[in-house]
Design a protein around this nucleic acid. Structure first.
Lengths: 232, 232
DNA sequence: CGCGATTTGTGCACGCCTTCACAAGCGCCT
DNA sequence: AGGCGCTTGTGAAGGCGTGCACAAATCGCG
C-alpha cells in the first residue's frame, strides 16, 4: 500500500499500451495470453514485455502465459486506475472542445468534472453536460472538487498562468497541449503533447527519405502485403 | 543535397522545440542567443542542446552564441520545413474536427489539403474551407494531390484499413491518433499520439505520489515561487 | 510418476543518450 | 597588439534501456 516499486519510466509509458491490448484480447474471449502474443498485440518485443511485467511482480505462469483478467487488474492497480481521478480542462477552443467530448477519456476511467475558459463568450456554454466556467473560478473549484489532473488547451501565452493557478490549487499533474515550456515545482508532473511537433518529426523523415531516393520517378508501386493489425 | 547526417532520433525530436523557442526569441528582438539561454527557453540542458546543434554543423560563434535567424533557417532546412508537405486527415469525429481547425498546423507550415470520412452524413460537410470527401476517394486523391503525410483520427477498428489505403496511395508518413497498433511496411514512418495514455501515465505518478505521502492531511499549501516561463 | 514441450523470468552484453568538464576559439577592451 | 572573459564544440564517463539467450518452472500426457 506504500513503498512503490520504482518502475523505469519507459516501462510505465508502455503499461497503458499493454492494458489496451489486454482489454482487446479479453473481449475476444482469451483467457490467458503468452508474452509473445501480447507483445504482438501491443507492438513491442516479447523480451521487453516480459521484463516490463516482471517489474510488477510474477503474474505469469511458466509454460502457460499470463492470466488476462489478473494482469489487467494488476496493471490497473499499478497505474492507479482503480481510483477515479478528477480531471479539469482549461481552454475550450478548437482543441479543448474536442478533448471535452473525447470518448477515449471516459472509456478509460477519466472523468472531466469541470471546464474553464477566459473568454466571456464561452462561459456558460454547455458542453457534454458541463457548463463552462470562468477561469477565475478555477482555483476555488479545483480545491472543492479535489481535482488531481489539469489539462491545458489554451494558447501558449496563457498556459503558464493557468499552470500557476492549477499548482496553487493543489493539482499535481498537468497535461499540456500548449506549445510552450511550463515551469512548475518539482513535485508536479507535466506531460506535453504538441501536435505540430509530431508533424515536424514526420517531415524530417520525409525529407530524409526524399534525399535518399535519388529521383525515384515519383511514387512507385507501394509495398502491398500488410498483415496482422490489432486483434480487432 | 543528399547524404543526410544521420541525426540521433532523440535529437530530431527536440529540434522542433528549439525551433519554437527560436521563433519566440526572434520575435522578442533577440539577434543572437547563447546555448544557455536557448536551452532554458526550450526546457533542456544546455550541454544537450549544444551537442544536438553540433550534429547539424557549426552554426554558433564562440564567445557570442548562435545567430537566431541563421539557426532557424538551418533547423527548418534539416526538418524539411522549407518545402510544404501536403497533409490529409481521415476521420472527422470529435478529434478530427478539432485537428482540421487546429491553428498550430497551418502556423508551422503544414497545410491540410483533404478531409475524408466513411460516414455518408459527414461527406459533403464544409470544414475550414474544405469539403469532406468519402473515404473511397482517398486513394485517388492522395495520389493526385501528392499527399505525403496522412493523419488518422478514426476509431481504432477502422485505423488499419485506412493506413493500408494510405500506404497503397504512396503516403510514407502517418500520424495515428487511433488507440491501436498499425502494421505498415518498413519504409513508412508512423507516429502515434494517444491522449488517454498520457492521462494514464499521469495517473501512475499521482498514485505513486499518493502512496508516498503517508496521510498528508490533504492538499497542503502548494509551493509558490514559479519563475520564468517561455519568453512570451 | 517421469518426461518433454512450452513459456516465464533474468543475467549479460551492447548501444544510445545524457551529462560533466574542459580545451579551443572568438570578440572586446585596454 | 595582447590579454581576458565568455561561449561553443567535444572527449570521456556514466546510466538507462534493449534484446539475446538460457535456466527455471509449470502443465499435460503416457
Amino acid at each position: 500500500m506504500s513503498a512503490f516499486p520504482d518502475l523505469p519510466e519507459a516501462t510505465i509509458a508502455r503499461l497503458p499500451e499493454y492494458l489496451r491490448a489486454l482489454h482487446n484480447l479479453g473481449e475476444g474471449g482469451a483467457d490467458t495470453i503468452s508474452s509473445e502474443g501480447l507483445a504482438a498485440a501491443a507492438g513491442v518485443n516479447s523480451a521487453k514485455l516480459r521484463k516490463d511485467l516482471s517489474h510488477l511482480g510474477s503474474y505469469g505462469t511458466r509454460g502457460v502465459g499470463y492470466d488476462v483478467t489478473l494482469l489487467i487488474e494488476q496493471i490497473e492497480y499499478v497505474l492507479g486506475l482503480d481510483q477515479r481521478r478528477a480531471v479539469c480542462l482549461v481552454g475550450l477552443g478548437n482543441l479543448g472542445h474536442a478533448l471535452a467530448g473525447y470518448d477515449g477519456f471516459a472509456s478509460r476511467g477519466f472523468k472531466i468534472v469541470a471546464l474553464f475558459d477566459a473568454d466571456e463568450a464561452k462561459v456558460g456554454e454547455q458542453i457534454q453536460g458541463l457548463v463552462v466556467r470562468h477561469i477565475e473560478e478555477l482555483g476555488r473549484v479545483a480545491v472543492e472538487e479535489n481535482i488531481a489532473i489539469g489539462v491545458i488547451a489554451t494558447p501558449a501565452r496563457a498556459a503558464q498562468a493557468v499552470a500557476d493557478v492549477l499548482v496553487d490549487a493543489g493539482v499535481t499533474s498537468i497535461l499540456n497541449f500548449a506549445p510552450c515550456v511550463l515551469s512548475v515545482p518539482a513535485n508536479v508532473d507535466v506531460r506535453k503533447v504538441d501536435l505540430a511537433i509530431e508533424l515536424q518529426i514526420l517531415s524530417f523523415h520525409e525529407h530524409r527519405k526524399a534525399s535518399l531516393t535519388a529521383l525515384p520517378g515519383g511514387r512507385s508501386a507501394a509495398a502491398a502485403g500488410n498483415q496482422e493489425a490489432v486483434g480487432s
